[in-house]
Every structure is written in structure tokens, then in C-alpha cells.
Nucleic acid binder design. Structure first.
Lengths: 235, 235
DNA sequence: TTCGATTTTTTGTCTATACATTAAATTTGA
DNA sequence: TCAAATTTAATGTATAGACAAAAAATCGAA
């Protein structure tokens, strides 16, 4: 393990373990140079990494301090549904319901997404061992993702297809609980009003909108897990 | 803007904008030194930051490449409910329902949490402008958080109190959708079976368990937001 | 040809030093 | 006394150079 990495993880451990509390002061770089018998650049590299991770704050002339936790952020594992289901030894399938290419409607969301072009509108069903797990309503910008128009989405669910074909994305996910509406309930094969986990996601590449998706999962069959901790900031 | 920062944001922009696609090769450090007229350490610092952000991969002898997006993880901002509500200009209050100090029950979760000591059991209601937003059922280890026994939790919700007093924690959150049960529905003032967002969280400091909480939020009044992208790794 | 050893290229780490920047601490001046 | 100017202690940025480590590329021999 490189020295700068050792210094970093030393202090990471002390902070996460509670030995160093928020507001506590860390030794100055000169002292750490002596303690670890290394140059200032090495110490600085270690501390810079801790700054990037949000664990410490540094102020010129004042020193280095354990940061107070600001936003309590966690890493949310967004499961690849197909992989997750298959991991449990069950069978996954995506069943397309509808698919058309159309112009954007009145909705501002649709107008922004289309960006002057057309929208590919895809509805489908996630199936586990033949039983519905969730329904999905998706819009994709034909301008931003030209390949989507001719793509074969019967084999691959559109989410997976997009992940493989759209290079780098920024996304925002909104999670809430709703009761299934009439049409949704019918597809899912449950009573109207059955609690479902609603996942809405908007995706960008740079400033260009790629897709909007709204997924409705049966509440008792699906849940999401998030972690917060030392492994959270790293990838 | 420092030079290393400029180099970093240059490439960040090109990658996020799609100009550089996953798998594309970046110039070697020597070329970047010439291009930016700086030393190798400066180039290296910029590229190291991009590695930390997960935007690029580097291999010795092979070079530097745009990374393929890892879609499985997003950053979930676990909101301090009180702060979030007040930000919207509404009034937040926490109404304690029950509070007692007791021994752990049969449940393995409770035994592990107590760790040989007692448990502080707190039930309460989150109120927005006087109306229920969610109910909360919480267990705190009295051994791990001695201060909790005498804490005044009428003014401050226990979640906020813990955040302020047990700073750096590791946590696991499970999110699902459920229908409100009889007692819960009564406290929330809704019909039994109303869809609710269920948030379960276990929290550690190091290997010591701190708290377990199960929150039930009205589905139409509360949602969670997660982000994936360049801003995700920062805090 | 094909496997194994050697070379070469590129990144990874570290040093020692220099000067810039910021803000706390101190001194100065009215 | 209090506020403005100065000093100073700490971090921030950058340089040039050295050697290490890994893996792709090349070469050599069975």
C-alpha cells in the first residue's frame, strides 16, 4: 500500500470510528511529515483525498479539521432488475406492451426531452417466472439516441439497451409510493390501489436529455437498498 | 482557477458531453504536459481526480481511457426531514408518541442492537403544518449512545439528534412500498392500506450498532431523490 | 510456430523546493 | 479602546527530477 494511501486510510479509520470527532483538529502537515517520515507532498496528497471525500475541511492558516456531516448522502444500489432476478435463480423476461414513435405532447417534460425531434414511447412489463414484477412507461429522445428507433427491444429491456448504447449519463431518480391506477393494476394483475414503489428517472448526457422513465413495482416484491459508509464515496 | 483544475474540468466536459466516448483513449501525460505547458505532476493530479471520480481508467503502459459508466450506483441524499420541510417554507414538528427504555426482545435484530445493554424505544410522528407526514418506529442502543437516555427529544426529532451527536456512521437503508397497517393508519389519519413509502435503516459506528428505524411516509406527500453523475461523488 | 525472456512505454509514487494565498494573530495608530 | 495595517502560520499550487511497477510489444530459441 502506497504511503499516501496509508495516511489517508489511517485518518479515515479514526474519523469513521469516532476517535476523531467533527470539529477536531488534525496535526499540521509538518507534524505529519515527521510522524510518517515523508515529504510534504505525500501528506498533502493524502489529506487532499480526504477533502475530496468530504471527511475533512482545511483552512489556510487555521489548519485541518474533521468535517461535520452535511448532507447525509448514501449510495443507492440501483439493481439491474434482470440480473437481480436471475441471481435468485428465477427467470426474468421483459414483455413489450406498446411502442411508437410520436411527436412531443403538451407536457413540458416531453417538449424538453424531444428537443425539437420525436419521441420513442415504449411501455412494457417486467416479468419474474412469468408473473408481473412491475410496469414501465418510457420516453426516449430520438434526436439524442438515433439508434433507438431501429433497435430490437424484444430481447433486451430498453433500460439495459440504453445503458449499453448511450455512453455517459447523468441521472436523477425520484422514489415514492403510490397506489396502482386502473390500467397499471390490470397489467400487474392486482387490485386498484395496491401499494407500489414508483421509480421515476430522468437521464441526461451533458445538457441533452436522453430518457424519462416511470416504473411501478409491486411493493411486496421489490425493494431498494442503499449504503452509507467508507465504501460509499469510492467506486 | 488552478491549472490542474482546468485540465480536469476540460476532460470532464468532453467526457460528459459525449465528445469522448467510453473506451476512447486520452493523450499520454507527456502530450498533455506540452499541450498545457506544465509539469507532469500537474497533469497527473488532474487525471488522478478523474480516476477518483470514476470518469477514466488508467493502465500502466496501456494509457488512459474513458471509463464505462457504472450504472448500478447512485447517490441518495437522505434528507434531514425537518430541514427539507422548512426549506419549502412549511412548518415541521416531531410529535413523540411513546418512549421507553427496555431490554431487547426475542428478535435477533434487537439483541444485536442492544449488545448486552438496554434499548431506547421511541415512536413518533412527523408533522408538516400540523398534518402527519409519516410515523417512525426507532430503537437506539443505550450502550452505544448513552446520551440518548437523558436527551430532550420533544424539540428535536431523534434522527436529527442522532446525526448531531453520533456523527459519522455507516448505514444501510431499505426502501419499499407498503400499505398502512391499522395502528399506523390511525396515527397518519388515513385509511388502512393507503400506499406508504417504507424506509428501514440500520446504522453502525465502526462495528457497533447504533440504531434501527422504520419510517412510514405518506406516499403522495414524500419522495426521495437520488442522483447519478458528475456531482454524485462530491458532497 | 509458439512459448518465454527481454525491452520499452506509460503510469504510480515520492522527494525537495519554491512561491502564492488566505486568514488568524499581532501590532500600530488615531 | 478600537479599527486598520502588518506579520505570520498554515494550506494551495506548481516544478523538475528520480525510481518503481506493470503490461504491451518485441525478440529469441526450442
Amino acid at each position: 500500500m502506497p504511503l499516501h494511501e496509508r495516511i489517508r486510510s489511517d485518518f479515515e479509520g479514526r474519523i469513521l470510528g469516532g476517535e476523531l470527532a467533527p470539529g477536531d483538529r488534525l496535526p499540521i502537515e509538518q507534524e505529519l511529515m515527521q510522524e510518517y517520515g515523508c515529504s510534504r507532498m505525500t501528506v498533502n496528497k493524502a489529506l487532499s483525498a480526504l477533502v475530496a471525500a468530504g471527511l475533512i475541511d482545511r483552512r489556510k492558516r487555521a489548519g485541518t479539521f474533521v468535517a461535520r456531516p452535511k448532507v447525509h448522502s448514501m449510495v443507492l444500489d440501483v439493481p439491474d432488475i434482470a440480473a437481480q432476478v436471475r441471481e435468485r435463480g428465477q427467470d426474468y423476461a421483459f414483455q413489450p406492451i406498446r411502442r411508437r414513435v410520436r411527436a412531443a405532447g403538451e407536457d413540458e417534460e416531453e417538449v424538453l426531452l424531444a428537443g425539437g425531434g420525436e419521441l420513442v414511447h415504449i411501455d412494457g412489463l417486467h416479468l419474474v417466472d412469468g408473473a408481473p414484477l412491475g410496469v414501465e412507461f418510457r420516453l426516449v429522445s430520438a434526436l439524442a439516441v438515433p439508434g433507438i428507433v431501429g433497435a430490437d427491444l424484444d430481447a433486451v429491456p430498453p433500460g439495459t439497451w440504453l445503458l449499453q448504447h448511450v455512453p455517459w449519463t447523468e441521472a436523477e431518480t425520484r422514489i415514492s409510493a403510490v397506489g396502482a391506477q386502473a390500467e397499471e393494476a390490470e397489467w400487474l394483475g392486482v387490485a386498484v390501489g395496491t401499494p407500489c414503489l414508483c421509480v421515476e428517472r430522468r437521464t441526461w448526457r451533458g445538457s441533452e436529455r436522453i430518457t424519462y422513465v416511470r416504473q411501478l413495482f409491486l411493493g411486496d416484491a421489490y425493494d431498494m437498498v442503499a449504503r452509507f459508509g467508507p465504501g460509499a464515496s469510492g467506486r
